[in-house]
Structure formats: C-alpha cells, structure tokens
Design a protein around this nucleic acid. Structure first.
Lengths: 186, 186, 186, 186
DNA sequence: TTTT
DNA sequence: TTTT
C-alpha cells in the first residue's frame, strides 16, 4: 500500500492478439495481452523511412482483466497504466530466466479502451472474431449472456472456465504469463 | 521521430550500484544503472509488515549517460523517464533470450537527480565510492576513469572543477534549490 | 470510480512555502502547497542563460494531506501525482473566476517525499521552520498547531516521537534508503 | 533546455470544439483546444450514478498545432502530453488574472490522435465539418490541397488567415489563448 | 463544449 | 502479433 519510489508505465497501443484470460484459484481473473507501440523515423544515411515496433507484455488482474476479456480484441487500441515487474522462472534446463511485464492491478492500474465502440451492431447474429479485424476500437462484450450486469457478479463460474477444465495440457507457450499458478513448469 | 502509440516509463528510486559507463564506437556514452523501487504493505493474513523491492535496468545514452556517470552513485535517488525496450540475445547455448530495459535517450528521455547535492566536499581527499553509501543525493563530479575524455565537450573542464580546485570548503551548496523569493503568483 | 479519459499530472519540485493545513467539517485534512518547477535555457539571441520558474498550486486530501503537514516544509522536494481540476469562484465584484489546481486525492494520488530525511535531529531544541531553509529533503514530524488531533489515528503518536523524546542525537537516519544488499537479479 | 524538476501533464479525452488555429508573427502555428475528461461514480448517499466532466485548455505549438488543425475536430479523441503553464493577464478592469493551460510544445510535447482514421473515405467530395460529428476518431485533412507535403512548408499563407485579415475585431472570447500576441486586450 |  |  505504501511505497518508496515510483514505478509507473504508460502505454498506448494496439493489441497483437485477443486477450488470454485465466482464473486464479481464488477466482480472480488474469488477462494477458500484448501491446504494440511503434516509432518511425527517416534514416539519415539511406534516407528511407524506417519503423520499429516494440511489443509489451501486459498482465491485468481482477476487474480490469474481466473487462479486457470482454471488450478487447486483436487490434484494439488501449491506454494502459501499470508498473514494471520482473518475474524469475526456471526454463526446462533449470536455468534462471527473467520476464518483465507491465502489471495492471489494484488502484494504481488503469485500462482505458480507446477509439469508441466499433463494429458490431444490434442483432449481430454471429460473434465477431472469425478472422475479422477491427480497427482500433473495442467490440461487443464477448459473453453478453442474458444478464450483462452479472459479468462482475460473484458467480464467476461462467467466466471461470478452468473450473470445468482445470488442466490445459495442450498449452504451448513455454513462458509463464504470471507466477500465480504454482505448478506450471515454465 | 514520429511514433504511433505511447511507450513511457517513469521511475523514482535509488541506484543499487555505481553506474557502469561504456562508450560506443561512435564515441557516444552509455550508462547502465539499476534502480530499486519498493512497496510495503501489511499482510492481511499474518498481519505483519511486508516489503518487496523491484529492480529496474536502465540504460542512458548520450549526454544523460555522461551526467549519470559523473554525478550518480550507488544509493543516489533519481527520477527517470524513458521507454521500454526488449532486446533479444543468444545465451551460451545459442538459445534466444530477452532482456527488457528502460531506455533513456534523446528528447523523450529525462534524468533528474533528486535530493540535492550531498556528501563530498569539505576537504575530502579521496574520491567517494569506497564502500560508502550516500543517502539519496548525488555527489561530486567524478572523472570517467580510463574513459576517453575527448567525448566530452570543452566546457566539461569547467564542470569538473575538482581537478583545478579539489577542495572547495566554502562550497556548501552552490546551486539554489529553487528561487523561493520569486513572487509566487498566488 | 470509473472514468472516461485520463487526467494526470506529475510534478517533481520544491515547496515555495510551508504547507497550509486545514480541516474540513468532516474532519478530513486538506493541505495546500505550492511547488516550483523550473527550466533553464540559453537564449539564442542574447546568448545569456535564462531561467523560468513555474509555480503549481497543489491540494492534497486525507492522509496525504496529514503526511504533507507533518513532514513537508518550505524547500522540501516532492514527487506529486494528481489530477487537474479547475474551480469556479466569485471574486469580490461578483465576477466569475477560475483557479486550476493539481488535486492529489484518493487512490490515484501520490505524494512521495524526495531526498531522504534531512536537517533536524542533533539536539535541535526548537522546531525547524523559523526562516531556515532545508535543501530538498523532508524534516522531522511537526505537530499540527491548533489543528484537531483527533483526526489522526492512534498510532500517530508514535510517529510524532519528538514529543516524548525531542532529542534523538543518535538518530542519523533510521530509515534505509533501499535494501541495497538485496540480490539484484541482474 | 535543462530543467530542474518535472512538470508533466498527460491527458486522454475528447475535444469539446474544433481546434482554433492562429499564427504568430514568426509564422509558427498555435492550436487551442479544449479537452474533456470525465469521472463517474456511484453516490454513496443517494445511490445514484454521478458524473463530473473536467475541461482542460490545451495549447499546441508548431508542427503539432498544424497537425491538430488539420486532423482534429470536435469530438476527436486525443492523447496529450505537455506541461502546466499559468499565464498572468489583466482583465478589462486592470485586475490581474491567471489562466492555467497545458502547453504542448517542443520535444517534450506529444499529441497522438486516437481511435484511427474515421469517417471520410475515398473520393469524398465535400469536406467534413458541416455540423457532422465524428465519434472519437480523427478525420480527413482539412485542406489537403494539391500538395499535402506543402502543409508544413514556408508558404503558409493558405493557412495563415490573419495575414489577410490581421484584425479580428469580432473575436469574442475575452480570455487570452496565449500571450504571444502583444496587443490583444484580454 | 466532448464522450459513454 | 497490432496499427499507420
């Protein structure tokens, strides 16, 4: 709660992929997203236009994670305010590895969807996502269900899919999104 | 020069070690520092006070690197504004590894020494640094060891006054913290 | 609690005066401070060094106001994170007037004292403040004059130790700047 | 160029009106915009949803002013990074008045249009603006003319209307947008 | 005066 | 992997 020093990251960029939502044993949501920021400049030597994209790992917790899971999609533009956090983990060779993420959590964390609601529309039969791409904005809630106001309600079973499927052996990314899950080997 | 998106990191913390200064083939300086920020909170379960320190790698370039090398020391408190950058490199096994740093460079980068000049001065014969620890402030300018001084501008001599005048006992603080006698407009 | 948009101000500067503390009918504290930031540059035309100081009105609320009242003094260096707020009021002629302030409040507000504890201590009989100027750091806790102390929590007594023990000559710095002996992970 | 202290404002919000562009005697552009940020919360007492909008005066200079003038419109969503500046001026009664603005200028200033290009489309015959309202995004350039790369070129006559009409006696806002123009009475 |  |  108290802190000595300031540790703040501010990002505005677009998601490289749909958010990955997981749930902690406590039931709290975690959303992992990657955000691209880019810079472009004219190369002094060659005179040609160059561009470099920086990719940022962002982990959102709690309510912000749920909102991210519902509204953000690949391509969505967001404002993020969080803090830098470096996690230590062991790779398959037992070697220490470090991963740095922007953690968006608690009262210091901010996530703002930018660009206004986009795409979608009333009476849209099929859920968006089948290869379509939105342009910066944010979409329709993913699981609007019958009662949208229940999205943040206690009964998170609906949105806690790992309870039905506690193991995801097929999970292929070999770097930990966050160290809350004890036994994940990476 | 142009950029799409925002990639900004703001840190206030203390250096874990003296800066490491290197020079690029171009002659430009690079300073690597590690900055600690910490958070403390009361554990709800055990009721005891807990603290976690986060360490940040920071790389400063150009003039800010030179200033860091001259004035910052282990323990110095700084304000840093830079951007996140993740570098890819190969370890000894040829495996891809990634390191994330806060890069402080060009016009977007900011480095401000905090806490006012401290320690040093008063006929201190030996350069500070032999295990001593200053509390937050920043020190006397220090010559960049074996580093090529031609990298520095001519007036650098003036700003390293301890060479001509190693002792300035009268110099308490020759830089006012602020013009407090300005007419505050409210 | 929710917000559309971002409204954030970050200041690092020195106080132009001692904080002015007031208490709201509710008992909550409000601290008004003025912070100076300055920029200096070389005038292209005349070639001379110029400097401009900008003064910022800052209003802190709640616990941060209490901390400001206890520890900040004229000259103290602080990091402030708050939001812009413009108040409308009527002058004596009934004309509308506007005042813009940086409001530091609630969970989005941050106030960090910079530069480490300073001055005070060492058998100083009288409370600091009689025209002296500290250089950046923050001082000994000070009793809030005629202010209602019931606003403060019980453990406040402990944090105002100079009442029971006005002199602590042995107390140089009883708060470490940072755990430098932590294992820095890189 | 150098600075002691940090003076930084970050805003994300929507324009309340089209930008007002003016040109200084030097030919440099100035854009004045107002940005809204808002917060909403549930009133504890009444239980009803409440919202408060904060309006920010923002002054952009130079190239960013030109970009603002071309692409931003009423309703556009922007990210702004600038610094607080309070100007003193005299009202018609000769009384001192102060106006605080967010100044976006030089290398520290940032203006990012959010939400992606909107409206418009290829072969759009009529320029947007006739009372239409865009939703957050930014539009077609206002005066794409024949040579878009001339927008920032010396011949700014096209976009320096005050040269043809040096006086704007009809100008009704009685508070100065910025103090570069000597004789404006407000 | 904007947005949701 | 995103956006322009």
């Amino acid at each position: 709660m108290a802190s000595r020093g300031v540790n703040k990251v501010i990002l505005v960029g677009n998601l490289g992929n749909d958010p990955e939502i997981r749930y902690m044993p406590s039931g709290g949501a975690v959303a992992n997203i990657t955000i691209a920021t880019s810079e472009s400049w004219r190369d002094k030597a060659t005179g040609e236009q160059r561009e470099k994209t920086e990719w940022h790992r962002v982990a959102l917790f709690g309510k912000l994670a749920e909102v991210a899971g519902e509204y953000l999609r690949k391509g969505s533009q967001v404002y993020i305010e969080g803090q830098l956090q470096t996690r230590k983990w062991q790779d398959q060779n037992g070697q220490d590895r470090y991963t740095t993420e922007v953690v968006v959590q608690g009262f210091n964390g901010v996530m703002q969807m930018l660009g206004g609601r986009q795409g979608g529309g009333q009476g849209m039969g099929a859920p968006m996502g089948g290869g379509q791409q939105q342009q910066g904005g944010w979409g329709q809630p993913q699981q609007p269900a019958a009662a949208p106001q229940q999205n943040f309600a206690p009964q998170q079973q609906q949105s806690a899919p790992q309870q039905q499927a506690p193991q995801q052996p097929q999970q292929q990314y070999n770097e930990p999104p966050m160290d809350f899950d004890d036994d994940i080997p990476f």
